[in-house]
Design a protein around this nucleic acid. Structure first.
Lengths: 196, 196
DNA sequence: AACTTTTCTTGTCCTATGGCAAGATTTATT
DNA sequence: AATAAATCTTGCCATAGGACAAGAAAAGTT
């Protein structure tokens, strides 16, 4: 008996539907595996993002500090997600965002210069990159509309439905600021839901 | 005496810092001038965006309808801005957004197929396209954070500072939904500011 | 296991903003 | 100019969610 070769994690991201063999051989080896300890930072405010990552395992969040020093969660990331500060990475300027591991994580990292070579030389790579960015834009806009159109309770229920893993793995406080409410309010919303 | 040749509007967007002569000659003639009457739609929900525009003159807004049928302004556009529904244009799927002229407008239009040819053949064109998208992402995220971190009054004052032309040319109701408040509240905020 | 720290819940009271409706003002239409 | 239709303001009252503080519970540390 022989063993099946274990497929590379990055084949979840780059697969043979969208890329031919040569392209995969040009792309996959450029990524470096990186482990992050719980609470370590992938990016800190004031620095420019020079890398991005795909998450193989673990949970991550990004956040900013507002004028009063309040910590506001801007996004959560888990398996297969891309972790990137789009503006800082592409505009090459210092960011306002912090990106922090919420658990021990394994990620696959690519740096800007390598990205640029792939982007300008492989059509399918730039098509996929553009698609990923645009989906990210779409999610951000949906979140934005939801902040205006929906009640806090509805926003929480949507997150629960779309992304149950987040709720199970992330502290209430971080979820609350992502939803634009206080942890106190979110606790009450949970109570109300559990008593239905 | 001879006259100076009037520069083409699109030279505001595509200039010789970022593009060489041949590139400009490949790009500029692909855009078609389009006039839109006040209240006419550039894009309607349910359709897929197959074009985008640069605004030479006039004011435009995009909006969505929420579940209860409330109209929520998602963005304003004026001179030199790009008007595009990024997700619909690139993912080629039906949109939730409506884009409507608030005044008579003159725009310059490019369609998807032509865009694709330029994007994949001209490096500087795709660099600029990516930059434009990423800036748009950045603005959206800033708006998002502001919705969570700032009071309605602060959001209004920021808009007033960043984009005074909008306030002078757009109805209070549309500005209010963009800021995530009712027209009633915005009217009170205005009153409060004017009495300071 | 004991202790410390962080997270979550709950109570009391407060504030920003919403809902509705009437009137005033401006803008569009005949 | 007269009328109609939007738009904007204002009053009154309602409510979602915030501020603060005290415990309870859970997680991390020695």
């Amino acid at each position: 008996m022989h063993q099946k070769p274990k497929p590379h994690f990055l084949n979840n991201i780059f697969n043979s539907n969208d890329f031919n063999k040569e392209e995969l051989e040009a792309i996959l080896p450029k990524f470096k595996q990186k482990a992050f300890k719980k609470n370590s930072f992938l990016l800190e405010q004031g620095k420019a993002a020079n890398e991005y990552w795909f998450v193989e395992s673990g949970f991550i969040r990004s956040f900013v500090l507002d004028i009063k020093g309040n910590d506001i969660t801007t996004n959560f990331y888990s398996v297969d997600d891309i972790v990137i500060d789009w503006p800082s990475f592409f505009l090459r300027n210092p960011t306002r965002e912090n990106i922090q591991a919420l658990t021990d994580c394994v990620c696959w990292q690519l740096d800007f210069d390598t990205f640029q070579k792939l982007f300008h030389s492989i059509e399918s790579f730039r098509e996929q990159g553009r698609t990923t960015l645009v989906k990210s834009y779409f999610n951000l806009k949906s979140h934005n509309i939801s902040m205006i159109a929906d009640q806090a309770k509805e926003r929480y229920e949507n997150l629960l439905k779309e992304n149950p893993l987040i709720i199970q793995n992330v502290s209430l406080k971080h979820i609350a600021t992502y939803l634009g409410i206080t942890d106190t309010s979110l606790s009450r919303i949970r109570k109300e839901i559990s008593s239905e």
